[in-house]
Write a protein that binds this DNA or RNA. Sequence first.
DNA 1: AGGAAACTACTTCTACAAATTTAGTTTCCG
DNA 2: CGGAAACTAAATTTGTAGAAGTAGTTTCCT
Lengths: 188, 188
Amino acid sequence: MSEDQKIKILKSTIKVFNIKGLKLTMDDIAEYMGISKKTIYKYYDSKEEIFDRIVDYVFSDIKKREQEILDEEGLSLEERVRKLLAAFPERFTEVDFAKLGDLKDKYPKIHKKLKKRLESGWEPTLELLEQGKREGLYREDANFQIFKVMMDASIARFFETDALKKNKISYVEALNQVVDILLTGIKA
Amino acid sequence: MSEDQKIKILKSTIKVFNIKGLKLTMDDIAEYMGISKKTIYKYYDSKEEIFDRIVDYVFSDIKKREQEILDEEGLSLEERVRKLLAAFPERFTEVDFAKLGDLKDKYPKIHKKLKKRLESGWEPTLELLEQGKREGLYREDANFQIFKVMMDASIARFFETDALKKNKISYVEALNQVVDILLTGIKA
DNA sequence: AGGAAACTACTTCTACAAATTTAGTTTCCG
DNA sequence: CGGAAACTAAATTTGTAGAAGTAGTTTCCT
């Protein structure tokens, strides 16, 4: 009953998910790991539980990285915001978001949880932005909710379309441009 | 055989479409207009032709408005770009874009045409932006393809979600903020 | 402990026929 | 001319029975 094995199951499930999407089966996971289903059920009660724990797992990673950035010394507010914005979507290169199509229908609870986590993932960034506004760094009339929608929508678009390939631009480069344009755009 | 009546049919079809979406029937249109199908078929050979002409109709309006802005005297490059960006999505308040879901499957030709028109609608704006870059108005490293994706994705997101209602902000206000952030963001 | 494989109850696909709807036409009538 | 309504051929939707697949369990074995 090692904790390692529990996490390995999650990681493997992510790997399989990135290929087969939500229609992956317990047999797929077992086969991929070279173990039997019985072992999986030793660690998890159901398939849904595995998915549920994957959300926790991914976001605990994000939270950790986020905390590192918040604790890092000698950063200007702007640098910190920039790091937070860059770190957040990068985590999702681990999970193929495009394959999450009908999560809402198949696993509504997990969909809800995921949305909530994505939402609260914005909190520290929004706080910093508000602080920046109070310090006169950002425009008085800047609406950070709109900022958020623009960031989310743009990143999602890059994931779901071939806009990047067509323009021969890497994901990291695109992300940097987006963050750059947005942060410059709200400057005082 | 009045030209007026032809256009009235298009306008009415848009009205019905905004309620029933793509599954509107010829009977729906006839009923809505208080005329009989026979009359509709006097002006158009098929339902698909009507949809096709709606695209032409909507974009001829856009083209006209676009030309006005390009011809308008005494505008700075930036003001002109801003007007173009604001004018384009405004036209789509006439047609409920969110109801266009399975256009691609049902009417692939029209979908292709629509995409092409949406694409070429960006041309004058992109040209002006490039000119602005040459004039040193915009950053040398600004990637306008990314600018475009950000604009399109953001506006689309506003249409398809309730982000606006939730934040008690009007569409025009949101559009202005988006344009503002983006244009400021690429400034030299 | 855990792999291989079989097993069960349940859900999800498939295929196809019957029922319904609809595009486009035609008839009748004012 | 053009409205009302009937008509037809085709497409779309619906129902469903059978097949296939799958979550979770159990048995046997090393």
